[in-house]
Simulated assay, not measured.
Amino acid sequence: MNTAPGLEIPSALRELAEKGIDQARQAFDGFIGAARQTVASTQGLMQTADTTTQDMASRSLQAAEQNVRATLDFAQKLTQAKSLQEAMQLQADFARSQLAAVQTQASEFGGIAQSAVKQGSEHAMNAARSGADQSRMSMEDGDEVGR
């Protein structure tokens, strides 16, 4: 029978391996924590997008209703016109008021979109900052364990 002589692993080598595993575990925990925060921030972005979509849909319906009502009012006035000149004046007034309404509506839609972009950017910046901070702290904790 061949029996291998008993080799013993030096305790210093075992301690070094344990420290390395502890550092790897802490780094992993830090990165997983950062990933979880990123997912949570993504959910915040999705909520912002959902709210913006609802705001845009609601405002679109309001604008459509406003425009249809204005058109129906114009059509009714037009049927009551007594002369071609009066009909042309009604048409000019309607065109002017609708142009102003469309400009106002476009401005409101732009404001909603701008607000959504700003909120999304803030969520993204906060998520990136938080993830970087957590990763840095995890790395620092790992360095302390290695000492």
Rank of each mutant, 00 (worst) to 15 (best):
Q62N: 13
A116N: 00
T104E: 04
D29N: 14
H123K: 05
T104D: 10
D50Q: 14
M125R: 14
T71M: 12
L99Q: 11
V102D: 01
I21H: 08
V102Q: 06
G111C: 04
M88S: 11
I32S: 12
D55H: 12
M88E: 11
T104F: 01
A128Y: 06
T104I: 03
S107K: 09
T48V: 13
Q105Y: 09
M88V: 07
F74I: 01
S130G: 08
K82T: 02
G111E: 05
F31R: 12
Q91S: 05
S97R: 12
L99E: 07
I21E: 15
M125Q: 08
K118N: 09
D55N: 14
G120L: 05
M125G: 04
Q114C: 02
D93C: 00
R129T: 06
L61A: 11
A63W: 00
Q114R: 09
G120C: 01
I112H: 06
A87D: 02
F28Y: 14
A34R: 01
A81T: 04
M56Q: 09
E86Q: 08
G30V: 07
T48N: 13
S130K: 14
L78H: 02
K82A: 11
L61C: 01
G120S: 11
L61K: 11
Q114F: 08
S107Q: 09
A64D: 00
F74Q: 03
D29R: 12
G44C: 08
D50H: 15
A40W: 03
Q37C: 10
A49C: 09
R25C: 04
R69V: 11
